[in-house]
């Protein structure tokens, strides 16, 4: 059978939903971060697949590279925030740090 663009899009949809579920249900700050990584990866798969199948150019590849860079920046900042959070509240459970609650 021939692998077409739909296959990749379906895989990325699954990945996206799993990521969404992770972000929605996990209470560990780092686990939420992992969920975000899943989301980013699913978007990235889409870009690469479109670049491969639809367009002749390299925009998709470049976009996925930018996504990786953004993920790196995000991970660095998130690590700093998590460490800060842990030092201040002695927990990384996001349901316990609710000082912004209205």
């Amino acid at each position: 059978m021939n692998i077409g663009i739909e296959h990749y899009l379906i895989v990325s949809s699954f990945l996206f939903v799993i990521g969404m579920y992770t972000v929605a249900t996990r209470r560990h700050a780092v686990a939420i971060l992992m969920g975000v990584e899943l989301l980013l990866n699913s978007a990235s798969i889409n870009f690469v697949a479109f670049s491969h199948f639809v367009e002749g150019g390299i925009s998709g590849y470049v976009f996925s590279l930018f996504i990786i860079v953004l993920a790196a920046a995000e991970a660095a900042v998130a690590l700093a925030i998590v460490l800060s959070l842990f030092r201040n509240t002695n927990t990384v459970d996001v349901t316990e740090s609710v000082t912004l609650q209205g």
Binding site: M20, V23, A24, A29, V98, T99, Q101, G102
Partner: peptide, 18 residues
């Protein structure tokens, strides 16, 4: 009034987005 929306739970915000 508006602040009642702000539960402070990150997951809820994620819900909102989804």
């Amino acid at each position: 009034v508006l602040r009642l929306h702000q539960t402070g739970y990150v997951n809820n915000y994620a819900y909102g987005i989804a």
